[in-house]
Design a protein around this nucleic acid. Sequence first.
DNA 1: CTTGAAGTTCCAGTAACTGGAGCCATTTAG
DNA 2: CTAAATGGCTCCAGTTACTGGAACTTCAAG
Lengths: 136, 136
Amino acid sequence: MNIGQAASLSQLPPKTIRYYEEIELINPARAENGYRDYSDGDVHRLRFLQRARGLGFSITECRLLLSLYEDKDRASHDVKAMALDKISEIDRKINELNSLKHTLSTLAEHCNGDNKPDCPIIEDLARGSQEPRGGP
Amino acid sequence: MNIGQAASLSQLPPKTIRYYEEIELINPARAENGYRDYSDGDVHRLRFLQRARGLGFSITECRLLLSLYEDKDRASHDVKAMALDKISEIDRKINELNSLKHTLSTLAEHCNGDNKPDCPIIEDLARGSQEPRGGP
DNA sequence: CTTGAAGTTCCAGTAACTGGAGCCATTTAG
DNA sequence: CTAAATGGCTCCAGTTACTGGAACTTCAAG
């Protein structure tokens, strides 16, 4: 399929898709006319990238995540370790999103009438899922 | 407090904190010696920015999120609408993270022995929280 | 065969940092 | 008190991850 269809399936702009090719995240075939020709697998990859990038993973991290699925040469226990590592990162993000959501929900409720919020909420906000102090 | 302490409390590098000042996300006081002087409130803001940026919200979105708490001039129902809007965005992100986590967990389990994954999982991966086809 | 949408490359610009040079202030060791 | 280390300051250049625009080709419809 052409880049346009790949774009609408993956929810990524064509520009970004071409950029991902430039930095070797994908390598679509070329048709005789010179147009890029995306397979279903390519679209899977792109869709994955779209999701992961939107969740705050860097390109480097995306590359790692992709390699978890596709690098058949890597030893199995490495894959597992990396997967578990990413899972705890994801758990952390989920926790942070939940706390952010809680903060916003409380705010929304408190804004129910027409009174302005004076917000003890901002305390909660800044606390978040903070570590107990004392560095890494 | 100085920028160093603000940095370690907010988990942001000093460079980034100065940059946030440049783009007017914070406005710390200055001590007599010219050093930036951060209040607890400033640190709250920074901590919030650190969390929100890490979760994939843009600077523009962070500005909006911050305004939800602090813009006392905005009408209350606007605040509520924006908060609800951001909440659904957050829910979407949480769903995506859960699906990503599920994918990785399955992978980790399947990689338990020393057999390489041949991955029907990649299907699941690319499906994610996709819309039912037919575009906006 | 023309018109328009969609593709191509290339180059420049933007967003959000990040690193480094060069200089002043503060703390700490001798 | 002086010297060195540490941390702050500004400014400017570089990086990452796109994004927009110009100039050209290709394809599908009328």
